[in-house]
Design a binder for these strands. Structure first.
Length: 754
DNA sequence: TAAGTCACG
DNA sequence: ACGTACGTGACTTAT
C-alpha cells in the first residue's frame, strides 16, 4: 500500500478506515454481501480510485461486481460519511457518528440516512436526531488530522559492492553517535532468518545498503558475507556504540543466527511509538505516514504477495537498497521526532528507557532460549483425544439422527434449532442463533445432544490447538519451542505471545492441564513458576487507598473472604464458600468495570440482587467507588489514563458521543490503569530477576511470561537460590501501600510447578 | 476473509 | 432501544 498517499491523498491507515466503513455500509444494503477492505483495496489499486471503481462496476466480474452495482445507490452516502470520518482523525477512530449537518448530504434523502442508521442499530442517535436536539458536532472532533508536510529533503542511498565504500562507511559508523540498523532476511521466522542484506543510516535521508546474498537473475557480484560480518562484528557487539532501529528484537535474533551478539541498542522507534501512542499501529510505514509524511516502499511493493511473492534474495539489488536504506534512514528521522516527545515527560521516559527498552533485549533472550516440550507425550494425548472424539461423534450423530459437522456452528444450529426444535437462548452478533458454551450448558439441562457437542468441542479444541500443533512448532535446530512475544500490541502495556501462543495453555480443566505436563525441564533441571498473587486487586487497593482493602491485604488474609465478610456483614471465620464465591466474582468484575447486568449474568441471579450487592460493596469500600468515579472523570478530561509508572492509555471515545461506545471507554478507563500497572510491574520484575541471575552468574533461565507469572528452567543446584530470591525480587520492584506477594512452585513440568 | 468459538490472565 | 466485563491469539468452517 505504499504510494497510497500520493495516489489518494490520504495515508493508508485512513484509507483502511474509509474502506472498512464502506464495507460496513454496503453490508447493510438488503441482499448485498459485504465488500471487505481487502477486496475494496484491490479494486482501488486496479482502477486508480474509488471513482474509478464505481465507473468500472460493470467490468467487475462475478458476485462481487453484482454486489457493487447493487450498492451503488448507497455509495454516495457511504462516501460522504467516510469523507467526514477521514477529516476527523481522533487517533484513527470514528469518534462519533456524525450529525446530518456535518454530513451535509445532498443526494441522499434524510429518510434514506435514517434507514441507514436504523439498520446500523444507532437508534439512540436516531432519536436524538429526530428530536432535532443534537448540538452541532464540536470542532475539535472533526478537526483535520495534522498530516505532516511531505518531506522532500533529498535522499541518497549507497549500495556497497566494494571494500573501499565499505571501509568508508564502517569509519562513518564507528564515528557516529547513533546509527540506525536494519537487516533484510530470507525468512519471517526470527530463529531461522538468514541475512540477505544490511542497511545503515547515520542521518535522515542518507543510508547505505550492503547486499550480501542476492541471487536474482541480474544480481551483481557481492562482498563475501562472512568477511563483511567479521569486519562489522566488533562494532555490532560494542555496547558503547549506540544503535537505533525498528523492532530491533528481530534484528537481534537475525544477528544471533550469524553468531553476532548485537549490543548497544539504545533506541527503538517501534517502542517509541508504542509508549507515545499505544493505541495506534506501529509499523514503519504507518509511522512514516503519521510523523514524516512519507511511507516508504512496502515489503509487498518489493516482493509481491500471495502465490506471486518472491524471496527477498530475488529482489533487484537497486530496489532492495532503496527499500532497506529508506527503512534505516526513516528510523533516524522518526527518532528525531519521537524521542523529544518522550523525553519531555518523565513518566514516559521511565516507561520507555527503564521498562520497554530493557524488556526488549530480555525478550530476545527468552525467545531464543525457548522452552522444552515433550513431543511424544503430546502425540500420545493427541491419539487418545482422537479416539475419544471418534466415539463422541458417533454418539452425537445417533442422537441427532444424522451425521453432521461438529466443528460447524452453523450445522449445529440447524440440527439443534431447526431439526430438533430446541429453544434459541441467544443470538450472535450477526443474528444467527448462538451455540456457544453458555447456551449449550443451559440446553444440556433439558436435552442430551448439547452436552455431547460441548464435550466434543472441548476435546477438539485441545487436540487441534495444543496437542497436535505444539509438537509441530519445535525448532529442529534447538529441539525447543520459541514463541514470539509481541511488545507493541496490547494497548495496556501487556505482552502478547504468538506462534505459538504460550500465554493461553490450558489450566482450568483437568483435561486441559495435561497439556502442561508436556512443558518440561531438561535432565538435571526443574521448572519453577513464580506468580504474583492478586496483583490487579492489590493495585486497585493501592490506587484507591480504600482502607478496608488496604487492611485486608496488609493483614495477609484471603481477600475474597475479607470482601465477603464486609459485604455480607459476617465474621471472617463464618464466611461460607458461596459467599466467598460471590465476593470473588464481584472483585473480578470490579476490575473490569462490570455493571449489575454482568454480575447478575455471571452469578446467575436477578439483576436487582446484583445491583444490591454492588451498592453494598461500594458502601463498604467507598474508596473503590471514588477511584472509579475519579478515573472516569480524569479520563474524560484528559482523554487518557495512566499507570503508576506513567504509561499512558488513550481513550479517544470517552469524549466522543454518548451511548455504548462511551460506556465501553469508561470501562477501559477503570481497567487499563490496573492491567497496565500490573504489566509494568512484571516487566520490571523480569528485568530485576535477569539482572540478578546475570550478576550471580546463575544458569537459571526465564523461559516464559504469562502476564502475572514467570516460568523458569532451573538447574537443581540453583533451586534454593531461585525459590528464595525470585519471589523477593518480584515483591521488591515497587513499594506499594500494600505488600506485593509472589508465590513459587516447583516441579518436573509446568503442571506440577503450581 | 469473516464469523464463531474458546484457550489464557 | 441498545448492550451489557478488560486484554489477548488461534483454530475451524464457510464463502
Amino acid at each position: 500500500m505504499a504510494g497510497v498517499q500520493e495516489k489518494f491523498g490520504v495515508p493508508p491507515d485512513r484509507i483502511i478506515d474509509y474502506l472498512t466503513l464502506m464495507g460496513d455500509t454496503v453490508d447493510n444494503v438488503p441482499g448485498v454481501e459485504k465488500v471487505g477492505p481487502k477486496t475494496a483495496a484491490k479494486w482501488i489499486a486496479e482502477y486508480g480510485s474509488l471513482d474509478g471503481v464505481i465507473a468500472a462496476a460493470d467490468k467487475i466480474k462475478g458476485a462481487a461486481g453484482e454486489n457493487l452495482r447493487k450498492a451503488l445507490d448507497w455509495l454516495p452516502m457511504a462516501r460522504k460519511l467516510v469523507t467526514v470520518v477521514l477529516d476527523c482523525d481522533l487517533n484513527g477512530h470514528v469518534p462519533q457518528w456524525p450529525s446530518l449537518d456535518a454530513l451535509a448530504l445532498r443526494p441522499v434523502d434524510e429518510a434514506g440516512l435514517q434507514e441507514f442508521y436504523k439498520r446500523n442499530g444507532f437508534k439512540t442517535w436516531l432519536k436524538e436526531l429526530s428530536a432535532k436536539a443534537e448540538a452541532p458536532v464540536s470542532e475539535d472532533m472533526f478537526a483535520a488530522a495534522p498530516v505532516p508536510a511531505p518531506d522532500d529533503t533529498p535522499r541518497h542511498y549507497d549500495t556497497i559492492l566494494d571494500w573501499a565504500l565499505f571501509d568508508a562507511w564502517l569509519a562513518k559508523l564507528t564515528a557516529a553517535e547513533l546509527v540506525a540498523v536494519d537487516t533484510e532476511t530470507d525468512s519471517l521466522d526470527p530463529m531461522r532468518a538468514q541475512i540477505v542484506g544490511i542497511s545503515f543510516a547515520v542521518k535522515a535521508g542518507e543510508a547505505a545498503y550492503i547486499p550480501l546474498r542476492h541471487d536474482g537473475p541480474d544480481a551483481p557480484v557481492q562482498l563475501p558475507i562472512d568477511e563483511v560480518l567479521a569486519k562489522l562484528k566488533p562494532w555490532l557487539e560494542d555496547a558503547a556504540a549506540a544503535k537505533l532501529g525498528q523492532n530491533l528484537k528481530y534484528d537481534t535474533h537475525v544477528f544471533a543466527n550469524h553468531g553476532i551478539s548485537l549490543r548497544g541498542v539504545q533506541h527503538d522507534t517501534m517502542l517509541q511509538s508504542y509508549v507515545l501512542e499505544a493505541h495506534k499501529t506501529h509499523g514503519l510505514g504507518a509511522l512514516g505516514e503519521r510523523h514524516l509524511g512519507r511511507a516508504g516502499l512496502s515489503y509487498e511493493d518489493l516482493c509481491g504477495k500471495g502465490v506471486h511473492q518472491i524471496p527477498f534474495a530475488q529482489v533487484d539489488v537497486a530496489r532492495a537498497a532503496q527499500y532497506s536504506g529508506e527503512d534505516s534512514e526513516m528510523c533516524v528521522a522518526l527518532h528525531e521526532q519521537l524521542w523529544p516527545q518522550i523525553e519531555r515527560e518523565a513518566g514516559l521516559t521511565f516507561v520507555y528507557r527503564d521498562i520497554e527498552m530493557p524488556t526488549s533485549a530480555l525478550l530476545a533472550r527468552i525467545e531464543r532460549v525457548g522452552v522444552l516440550i515433550d513431543a511424544p507425550l503430546l502425540q500420545a494425548q493427541s491419539h487418545e483425544l482422537g479416539q475419544r472424539l471418534l466415539a463422541l461423534e458417533q454418539e452425537a450423530y445417533e442422537i441427532a439422527g444424522q451425521p453432521f459437522n461438529l466443528g460447524s456452528p452453523k450445522q449445529i444450529g440447524e440440527i439443534l434449532f431447526t431439526k430438533l426444535g430446541l429453544p434459541v437462548v441467544k443470538k450472535t452478533a450477526t443474528g444467527a442463533p448462538s451455540t456457544d458454551e453458555e447456551v449449550l450448558e443451559k440446553l444440556s439441562l433439558d436435552y442430551p445432544l448439547p452436552a455431547k457437542i460441548l464435550e466434543t468441542r472441548g476435546l477438539a479444541k485441545l487436540k487441534s490447538t495444543y496437542t497436535d500443533k505444539l509438537p509441530l512448532m519445535i525448532n529442529p535446530a534447538t529441539g525447543r519451542v520459541h514463541t514470539n512475544y509481541a511488545q507493541a500490541v496490547a494497548v495496556t502495556g501487556r505482552l502478547s505471545s504468538n506462534e505459538p501462543n504460550l500465554q493461553n495453555i490450558p489450566i482450568r480443566t483437568a483435561e486441559g492441564r495435561r497439556v502442561r505436563e508436556a512443558f518440561v525441564a531438561p535432565p538435571g533441571h526443574l521448572i519453577v513458576s513464580a506468580d504474583y498473587s492478586q496483583i490487579e486487586l492489590r493495585i486497585m487497593a493501592h490506587i484507591s487507598e480504600d482502607p478496608g482493602l488496604l487492611r485486608a491485604f496488609g493483614d495477609g488474609v484471603d481477600v475474597h473472604r475479607a470482601t465477603a465478610s464486609e459485604v455480607f456483614n459476617t465474621p471472617l471465620a463464618e464466611v461460607t464458600t458461596e459467599q466467598r464465591r460471590y465476593a470473588k466474582t464481584i472483585n473480578f468484575g470490579l476490575i473490569y468495570g462490570m455493571g449489575a447486568f454482568g454480575l447478575a449474568q455471571s452469578l446467575g441471579i436477578e439483576q436487582k440482587a446484583a445491583r444490591d450487592y454492588i451498592e453494598l460493596y461500594f458502601n463498604r469500600f467507598a474508596g473503590v467507588k471514588h477511584y472509579m468515579d475519579n478515573t472516569k472523570a480524569r479520563a474524560a478530561e484528559l482523554g487518557y489514563v495512566e499507570t503508576l509508572f506513567g504509561r499512558r492509555i488513550y481513550l479517544p471515545e470517552i469524549k466522543g458521543g454518548n451511548g455504548p461506545r462511551k460506556a465501553g471507554a469508561e470501562r477501559q478507563s477503570i481497567n487499563a490503569p490496573m492491567q497496565g500497572t500490573a504489566a509494568d510491574l512484571i516487566k520490571l520484575a523480569m528485568i530485576a530477576v535477569q539482572t540478578a541471575l546475570d550478576n550471580e552468574g546463575k544458569a537459571t533461565r526465564i523461559v516464559m511470561q504469562v502476564h502475572d507469572e514467570l516460568v523458569f528452567e532451573v538447574p537443581q543446584g540453583e533451586l534454593d537460590w531461585v525459590k528464595a530470591e525470585v519471589p523477593r525480587l518480584m515483591a521488591g520492584v515497587a513499594q506499594l501501600k500494600v505488600p506485593l506477594l509472589a508465590e513459587v512452585g516447583v516441579g518436573p513440568n509446568w503442571d506440577q510447578a503450581h
